[in-house]
Amino acid sequence: MPEPAAPLAPAYYAIRARGWRRDVWALLHPPYTAWHLSYVLIGAGLAPRVEITRLLATLVAFFLAVGVSAHALDELRGRPLQTQVPEGILWTAAVAGLVGAVGLGVAGVTVLGAGLIPFIAAGVLFVFAYNLELLGGRLHGDLWFALSWGAFPVLTAYFAQTGRLSIAAVAAAAAAYATSFGQRALSTPARQLRRKTRSVSGIVTLRDGTETQLDERALLNPLELALRAFAWGTVLLGLGLVAAKLL
């Protein structure tokens, strides 16, 4: 009888080794954080002129809100990444990250005016309502994920550059919404396989009689290959749009 396969890591970027470096790396969700920060680049890159200071401030604000605060709150709900970070530190990271993001937003109000305030309020709502599954989890579905971490960064970044919205920004936000929705369609079954599945077995028989054994890896590989490709492809798209305006 073949030996059972070793348990899968909770995410493809979360190695099975233990230690604070591994935990911090896993909590930051580097590929997904980079993916969603690229929407900031896309939104800014659509502006007629890119103000680098505003772009950097927007990137830092979203990194603090998504990369730090949202992911710390997510880990507080059941330890999906199996980290050993104390609960108090996770709460501190969540609050400090959000305070830092809001602080940058408030500083932006002094430059852009009160029009930025609804974006700040929406960002706070998305972080807490989505990641803590408030309102009975009504804001924790695929639609809200795509809105909060896809469309919202594009619109916010464009507004931070121009002080207004445009048809182009709304169209790009709709595209980010669609790609984020697709991300969830790929990442949800991948997470289920890595974190909740005990075993997978089966055989795929092709018309020519060829048989392929099914296991966790056979199901995971196409999902995670697509996630990797979309993540880095979107990052490069965002960098290209900004570079076209700056270089």
Rank of each mutant, 00 (worst) to 15 (best):
E51P: 01
A171V: 15
G19D: 06
T156G: 03
G78E: 07
L239G: 02
K245T: 13
G182E: 07
A122F: 05
L104S: 01
G182K: 12
P4C: 09
L134Q: 07
W232S: 00
R21I: 14
P4L: 14
G202F: 12
E3I: 09
R138L: 12
A65C: 03
D208V: 06
A5F: 07
A190Y: 03
G97S: 04
A121Q: 03
P10K: 01
A176S: 04
V40T: 15
L139V: 09
F181V: 10
L112W: 03
F145P: 00
A70W: 11
M1A: 07
F126E: 06
A176E: 05
L214A: 09
L55S: 02
A34Y: 07
L247T: 15
L227T: 06
I42N: 04
P86S: 15
A151K: 12
E133P: 01
G238L: 04
F230H: 11
S201C: 02
I89R: 13
T58S: 11
P7L: 08
L28P: 00
A129H: 12
R77N: 11
H36V: 04
F126D: 03
L143E: 09
P222E: 08
A172D: 00
F152V: 12
R228K: 15
I15A: 03
G238K: 14
W232A: 04
H71P: 00
A17D: 05
A11H: 04
V200N: 10
V200I: 15
P222N: 13
G78Y: 11
H71R: 13
L46I: 14
P2T: 14
L139D: 04
A5E: 15
G233A: 11
L56K: 06
T83D: 03
A172F: 01
F181E: 02
T212I: 15
G123R: 11
G45F: 13
A243W: 08
R138W: 13
A94C: 06
G137K: 09
P30W: 07
F152C: 00
Q82P: 02
S38I: 08
L193I: 11
A176L: 04
A93I: 05
R184V: 13
A57F: 08
A185V: 10
F145T: 01
I167E: 05
L247Q: 06
L223F: 10
A244N: 06
R217V: 13
G108F: 06
A70Y: 06
G19I: 05
R138N: 10
F63D: 00
L81R: 14
A70S: 13
R207G: 10
A65L: 12
A172W: 02
V102N: 03
A129E: 02
A93F: 11
A34M: 14
I120D: 02
G105P: 15
G115P: 12
P222L: 10
F145N: 11
V109T: 00
A9Q: 08
P80K: 05
